[in-house]
Amino acid sequence: MYSTSVADAPLIREPLHAPVAHLIRGGVVEGLHYGSVVVLDAGGTVRLQIGDIEAAFYPRSALKPVQAVAMVRAGLPLEGELLSLAAASHSGEERHLAGARRILERAGLREDHLRNVPDMPLDPAVRDTWVREGRAPSRLAQNCSGKHAAMLYTCTLNGWPLDDYLDPGHPLQQAIAEIAEDLTGQRVAKVSVDGCGAPLFSVSLHGLARAAARITTAAAGTPEARVADAMRDHAEMASGAGRDVAALMRAVPGLLAKDGYEGVQVAALPDGRAVAVKIADGAGRARIPVTAAALARAGVDSGLLTGFAGEPLLGGGEPVGCVRPVRALDPAPLTACA
């Protein structure tokens, strides 16, 4: 039986996305990014919505804090940087690989127990170094290895089988689905497979924002608070050096933020204010400027967000434009970034 506090699954439909960012060159709108945005106040009320915040979608890696909470609720004893790594889309730096090895060692396991796909490091500079050194793709280097190592550790602690830990019917994945529904407040609409091979649960953008707010407002010492504290205190373990999501958590006191593939971003403050963003075309260049503008609409001091306007558009090697959130998010004139 589902709890009465869990709503029906969001509808699976073509999302009714709307413009969320302009690509401006020399004061002229050159392009347009569609997407959806939701801003929640501290009481959970929707204060701003653009596009379709209720359609089913895949949060991709933005759901990792929820997965980590589920594992901690199931007994995962990790803290600090290793718990942050369990919720990470890491860059493949040596500290990330070493951390994943440490989690496996605590579980008495080896790299070959991992079932995520082998890959090169996510960070371009780290990946280039691997190529120069002739290193092959590995499961540890893949950006979800911390999550997978933590999944295996959780399984060993509960006596659950290891070989099929990625099967949606496995006790671990059933536990994660239950917590995803608890924190988002809605049933899962669809289960698919994420890029790393783990089950991927479809919820709504609104539900994703609710889940982030539930995590950041939880009482100290709870699984939710432990995950939030670990990610905020060790932001580079949840991402990597130079990553925008880590910089955003450092810039805004108390902010928990997690990005996801295909233009997804969620962020929440300790008082429950939260934003969630989906860029329809998956464009990374629009994700952070739109998120920063949404956080400003949530009441975050805009002075803390000045470094998150996105990369400038270049002409002849010089800045000639920018990616500017739509006026519902940022009322500045189009010529402001010309």
Rank of each mutant, 00 (worst) to 15 (best):
317 G>D: 01
183 L>W: 00
15 P>S: 08
162 L>N: 08
61 S>D: 10
101 R>G: 05
221 G>H: 07
79 E>V: 12
28 V>P: 05
36 S>E: 09
150 A>V: 04
241 A>I: 14
37 V>A: 01
35 G>I: 00
61 S>G: 05
25 R>Y: 09
316 G>A: 12
238 A>Y: 04
226 R>E: 08
17 H>Y: 13
294 A>C: 10
79 E>Y: 01
30 E>I: 03
116 N>C: 15
188 V>L: 05
268 A>M: 14
181 E>H: 02
159 G>Y: 07
190 K>S: 04
144 C>E: 10
16 L>Q: 15
22 H>G: 13
58 Y>W: 05
165 Y>M: 00
70 A>F: 03
144 C>A: 13
110 R>E: 10
130 W>C: 12
153 Y>C: 09
250 R>G: 07
129 T>H: 10
133 E>A: 03
273 R>G: 13
335 T>D: 14
30 E>W: 11
39 V>D: 07
112 D>V: 07
305 L>N: 03
111 E>F: 02
205 L>D: 09
119 D>W: 01
20 V>H: 11
256 L>G: 06
55 A>W: 10
224 E>W: 02
127 R>A: 15
125 A>L: 12
109 L>F: 02
306 T>A: 12
319 P>D: 03
108 G>F: 05
274 A>L: 01
62 A>R: 07
288 I>Y: 11
40 L>I: 00
98 A>E: 15
267 A>R: 01
314 L>N: 07
104 L>V: 02
74 A>Q: 09
171 P>E: 04
61 S>R: 05
144 C>K: 14
334 L>P: 03
322 C>T: 08
272 G>D: 08
147 K>Q: 11
106 R>F: 00
232 R>Q: 05
77 P>N: 08
37 V>F: 00
335 T>H: 13
229 D>E: 15
4 T>R: 10
284 G>D: 12
55 A>L: 06
326 V>Y: 11
163 D>G: 10
237 M>G: 05
184 T>H: 04
230 A>R: 06
150 A>D: 09
46 V>W: 02
207 G>A: 02
121 P>H: 12
108 G>K: 05
236 E>H: 09
336 A>G: 10
311 E>N: 15
236 E>D: 15
310 G>S: 12
215 I>E: 06
190 K>A: 08
175 A>K: 03
335 T>C: 05
231 M>V: 08
256 L>R: 15
273 R>E: 09
42 A>C: 03
151 M>G: 12
7 A>D: 07
334 L>H: 06
201 F>A: 02
235 A>R: 13
206 H>Q: 04
162 L>V: 09
59 P>E: 06
84 S>E: 13
289 P>E: 06
5 S>W: 08
273 R>W: 01
236 E>C: 11
228 A>I: 11
167 D>Q: 08
50 I>Q: 02
128 D>R: 15
32 L>W: 14
